[in-house]
Design a binder for these strands. Structure first.
Lengths: 97, 97
DNA sequence: TCATTGCTTGCGCAATTACGCAAGTAAATC
DNA sequence: GATTTACTTGCGTAATTGCGCAAGCAATGA
């Protein structure tokens, strides 16, 4: 058996992850990071938005535990924290068609 | 190769599905519907919200193509349109932990 | 130390969202 | 036809979100 309290927590966390994936630009970031880590400015250019905007999107993804970051000199690289997010995205696309 | 136009469309649709799953109450609905179809009032009671609120949540899920409805007399039954959404939810929970 | 590069944070605003409540529609029963 | 049951839709509001822009912080180099 499972208490409704933990069930609620699991749902809330899953909802947070889904929320982080509910934006086209953030999904674009996930696609880019599938090939490996990238800097904020790279992602900003790829997605086609300003750097502060990208930084905020990355903060949302990080808060959801989808990405992690690493600083190398003055550059910050982001990468997928869990490759399983790609599996989520893949099935998401199937459901979406 | 694939045009960026269709890539954008695919992302937008996937984002819409993720958006529909980004609410704890709607995830609760998905859980309930995993066992089969249920009426709006049933879902309303299970989730613990008012009927109009549940109706709106179901409208969001339907707009995303996640559920379909069937009227039997004065009662409307909802069910999952695509069982794959359960797979999305399952992996979503793994990423979320 | 000062300037530059790369990123984050704060702020204001427009748009979207979730909710309660009231009103409207649809089907069954009287 | 009128009432009841089941659901949807409209409306107002508080909260959240995405964005641009300016300012701040960290690391490198002059």
């Amino acid at each position: 058996m499972e208490s409704t309290l933990t069930a609620d927590l699991v749902r809330d966390r899953a909802a947070t992850v889904a929320r982080a994936l509910s934006d086209a630009k953030r999904l674009c970031v996930v696609e880019r990071l599938a090939d490996g880590e990238r800097s904020v400015s790279d992602l900003s250019r790829d997605v086609g938005c300003q750097v502060p905007n990208m930084s905020q999107h990355l903060a949302v993804l990080r808060a959801a535990g989808i990405v992690t970051s690493r600083r190398e000199g003055s550059t910050v690289f982001y990468r997928l924290a869990d490759p399983q997010v790609l599996e989520v995205y893949r099935i998401l696309q199937q459901v979406a068609r």
